[in-house]
Design a protein around this nucleic acid. Structure first.
Lengths: 341, 341
DNA sequence: TTGAAAGCGATACCAG
DNA sequence: CTGGTATCGCTTTCAA
């Protein structure tokens, strides 16, 4: 016994019209009189007709899906604050328009590229979202060669594919100003993974803001966005002959690791060392002291990226989008600079 | 100018055979001589032919996708350690078999149910994975009514749909034994959200193990799997006239929150209070003291669940699967019971 | 063994 | 405005 689903043919028969009329009527296309349209819609509703995605896909040459390939180690994704909101935002945008999200995760760069090739080869998705961009990211030429519609999230300036961005500059500048107002002068920076474009972007913003505020940019300790990276950066900074009185970290997780390490070494935060993060993850509100940070909007980024991608797929061209700037949130991990020694 | 993709027709023409022969040859079906098969495969490779998923879907009445609907607040997903590994595992299993994962997230229960209805209505997916099961979960009757192939993750015993399970009992028993060996007698428990089946399961395991070890089950503080829930459970426990010397928590996140709160209240862990968690999330290895916990295997669960679901979709029946038991990992957060006062 | 043709379930064109 | 029909790219049945 086969599928007992109701198809467009059933609707056409029951309504006594041609399937083409059903299609036109249901898709709001012209060429059907109002009365027939009404009747068709009525019949379709009665029958509980839902157009088959498979039929639509073949005839419409679209899969009605968009792809997201995460270049991460699945076992470590757990600590990434970005994806819940980001994926939620994508859906906010694409679901109402009939698209769904196909998600893949891969730790290895090669595999990631293969996934895109496969996406393009069997046409599983109509377009892709590209995030965690690296400097000279090999995915970009690949995607262009494959002719896959794509939208990038937070790429650098002048990017060759449509993009949605959230500018970190204002938030970083505000953080630095906040620290300066608290009396800090030696403000170090713990960077992110060096080949990621948003690492570069954040570090540049920190440097520019330092200069702008009349400071000599402080020590930069290489980090990697992880808790452990933050912890060892903390050790390194506190071992300096003249340790900084404040540190800004490329993300919250490393800031939290740094704070834990400082506390472990008997250094009071924020009494002896002020620490600021970036991202505004939940955990930052729980830890003690709670974390001063820069709030970002993964959900909004996802929403705009999803919208842009569907527009791109359906209309062929879109303009870049900027979501509201990231902004400072002051909590407990930053305080007055200790009196000069 | 239309799509310039190579189709089965191109292959058939170039090879000088009928498309049906190409189909048979490429899918390893009988009815083609070895030489023709070779030739067809050669031509297909030369042309870079990849069968269109859309064509296959329509004719094969399958979407070659499986669905996962997360019933979570997207903005809070960040702290969930389960999904990275779980999703990675699903892919490990389904990707080699030609399936992809469609992911959706929704905070509201109603919307979650609607997603399933839609999945079934337009046939976007061939089957679904069901996790985070609740007692009397409304998704189960719905899924059965919709006739959606489904696999459940860690449901209770005697579940009406195929399931993959990881038994927590052994790990919980081992944890309790470990604590008893360290001299603890008053061992409290911080539970998870009460309507989740795995909360119930873990709590029951703890109670059973307590009795088994000759203890009167200690205080149970209701928790909710969150950091804050753990923290307030900590406050509650430490305010008791006779506080426990050890606590077992329903998950790591609440254990970490509890430890932070204990430390905040000036209670040494593990000197004055031993704490054990459940899940073995990364964060537990970073915090100080590092967390004694029960290791679970989301990746393996995902892998088996994916495998089961594809089997179910393609063969119509499967047997339940158990992955290796969760097991104790001793770290620093548990230690000898303080001398009796 | 091979090939022709009938679906699968829509969309879209083109006569009537 | 309406309805018949070709088409999308496959799988599968059925003759030859």
């Amino acid at each position: 016994m086969a599928d007992q689903r109701v198809t467009i043919v059933d609707v056409a028969n029951k309504a006594g019209v041609a399937i083409s009329s059903v299609s036109s009527a249901l898709n709001g296309r012209p060429g059907v009189s109002d009365v027939t349209r009404e009747r068709i819609i009525q019949v379709a509703t009665d029958l509980g007709f839902v157009p088959s995605l498979r039929g639509k896909s073949l005839s419409g040459r679209r899969a009605f899906t968009v792809g997201l390939v995460l270049h991460r180690d699945p076992d470590v994704l757990e600590l990434d604050p970005f994806f819940g909101g980001f994926i939620g935002g994508i859906e906010d945008a694409i679901d109402p328009r009939g698209y769904a999200l196909v998600l893949q995760i891969s730790a290895e760069s090669d595999k990631v590229l293969q996934r895109y090739e496969k996406f393009a080869a069997d046409r599983r998705v109509d377009g892709v979202l590209v995030n965690d961009l690296e400097v000279d990211d090999p995915r970009i030429p690949l995607i262009r060669r494959l002719g896959l519609p794509a939208v990038a999230i937070n790429p650098g300036a002048d990017f060759p594919i449509p993009a949605v961005r959230q500018d970190p500059d204002a938030g970083i500048r505000a953080t630095l100003r906040h620290l300066v107002e608290l009396g800090h002068r030696r403000i170090a920076y713990v960077s992110g993974r060096p080949h990621m474009t948003h690492s570069v972007e954040r570090e540049n913003a920190w440097r520019a803001a330092s200069l702008e505020l009349g400071l000599t940019p402080g020590q930069v300790i290489p980090g990697d966005f992880t808790y452990l990276g933050g912890a060892s950066a903390g050790s390194a900074l506190l071992a300096l002959a003249e340790p900084p009185t404040a540190v800004m970290c490329a993300n919250d997780l490393s800031a939290i690791g740094l704070i834990a390490q400082a506390q472990h070494l008997g250094v009071d935060v924020p009494g002896e060392l002020s620490v600021a993060g970036f991202d505004d993850i939940r955990l930052g509100t729980y830890v003690r002291p709670s974390l001063t940070t820069v709030h970002t909007s993964p959900r909004e980024l996802g929403r705009e990226a999803g919208r842009l991608l569907v527009d791109l797929i359906e209309n062929g061209a879109v303009a870049d989008v900027r979501v509201s700037d990231a902004h400072l949130i002051v909590r407990e991990s930053t305080g007055p600079a200790p009196a000069a020694r």
